[in-house]
Deep mutational scan, measured.
Amino acid sequence: MEQATVKWFNAEKGFGFIERENGDDVFVHFSAIQGDGFKSLDEGQAVTFDVEEGQRGPQAANVQKA
């Protein structure tokens, strides 16, 4: 698992990007966020996640709020 920071997340559209420590951004979809209830992330929030290869490149999976 990697630890990184949420760059931005649009709760209405259900997706955003996580900024990795190496500077690369990773796409995150609300369905990858672990937990119950409304799944959203806040800008600047610390998260841990795995990286999977998606249809359009790397994307976050198993996202957990740190």
Rank of each mutant, 00 (worst) to 15 (best):
F9K: 00
G37N: 06
Q34I: 14
E12Y: 13
T48C: 11
Q59N: 05
E21G: 10
A46M: 13
R56A: 09
N62C: 09
M1F: 12
D50N: 15
Q55H: 13
I18K: 01
L41N: 02
T5W: 14
Q64V: 12
D25P: 08
Q34L: 13
K13M: 11
E19V: 15
D50Q: 14
I18T: 03
Q55M: 13
A61M: 11
E2W: 14
A46H: 14
Q64N: 11
A4D: 01
Q59F: 11
N22E: 09
Q55A: 13
I18D: 01
W8S: 02
G16A: 05
Q3N: 11
K7F: 06
E52T: 12
T48F: 13
E21Y: 11
G57P: 04
N62A: 05
E19C: 15
G37W: 07
H29D: 01
V26Y: 04
V28R: 02
M1I: 11
E2Y: 15
L41D: 01
D25L: 15
N62V: 04
S31E: 01
P58A: 09
N22R: 09
R56M: 09
K13H: 08
E19T: 15
I33P: 03
M1E: 09
D50C: 14
A61Q: 09
K7Q: 02
E19F: 13
S31H: 06
Q55E: 12
D42P: 07
V51T: 08
Q59K: 09
V51A: 05
Q59L: 06
E2P: 09
Q59Y: 13
A66H: 12
G37T: 06
I18F: 05
K7G: 02
A11I: 12
Q55R: 15
D25V: 13
R20F: 07
F49T: 01
D36W: 11
A61V: 14
E2K: 11
S31Y: 06
G57I: 03
V51W: 08
Q45M: 11
W8L: 02
G54T: 13
K39C: 09
E19R: 15
Q64W: 11
E43F: 12
Q64R: 14
F38C: 11
F17L: 05
N62G: 04
D42A: 14
V51N: 03
F30V: 06
R56Q: 09
E53K: 10
S31T: 12
N10R: 06
R56F: 14
D36F: 12
G35S: 09
N22F: 11
G57T: 04
V6D: 00
D50W: 15
V26E: 00
D42F: 15
D24Y: 10
Q45C: 09
L41Y: 02
E43K: 15
E52S: 10
E53S: 10
D42M: 15
D50E: 14
A66C: 13
Q45I: 08
D36H: 12
N62I: 05
G16I: 04
W8V: 03
V28A: 02
G14S: 02
F9G: 03
E52D: 06
D36G: 11
K7M: 02
T48L: 11
V26S: 00
G57M: 04
E21K: 13
A32Y: 05
A66F: 12
T48Q: 08
F49W: 01
R20Y: 05
N22V: 10
F30K: 06
P58D: 05
Q64F: 10
I33V: 07
A66S: 12
G57Y: 04
N62M: 07
V63G: 01
D25H: 13
V6C: 07
A32V: 07
